[in-house]
């Protein structure tokens, strides 16, 4: 599996550290109800298909990335900087 870092280019996935679902970008606001925190911390989809995860380019540029990949075909569908995804509004 290879990941095309928006800054560094096409690199082996072993240069990257996996963090978890991209849901971690959508942190509940101060004063959010307990249900929102429960969902944020624990509730995950388990799709057969496109899934969005956070990866860190540890051996490269040290950027956090949103990687959209297909859990069935293993294809990497898109890679974006977290900062870019957030700048364009919530839908990282």
């Amino acid at each position: 599996m290879r990941i095309t870092c928006p800054l560094c280019g096409d690199r082996d996935r072993r240069e990257f550290t996996y963090y978890g679902a991209a849901d971690y970008l959508n942190r509940p606001g101060m004063g959010a109800p307990a249900e929102a925190w429960d969902a944020y911390l624990h509730l995950r989809d388990n799709p057969a298909g496109a899934t969005r995860d956070l990866w860190y380019h540890e051996m490269g540029c040290a950027a956090w990335l949103v990687v959209n990949r297909d859990t069935v075909s293993h294809a990497v569908l898109s890679v974006r900087l977290v900062t870019d995804a957030q700048a364009e509004g919530g839908a990282a």
Binding site: C8, R11, E15, M59, G60, A62
Partner: peptide, 10 residues
Amino acid sequence: VARAPLGHMM
């Protein structure tokens, strides 16, 4: 310039 692994080193 690139940031890349050299063996296992950053």
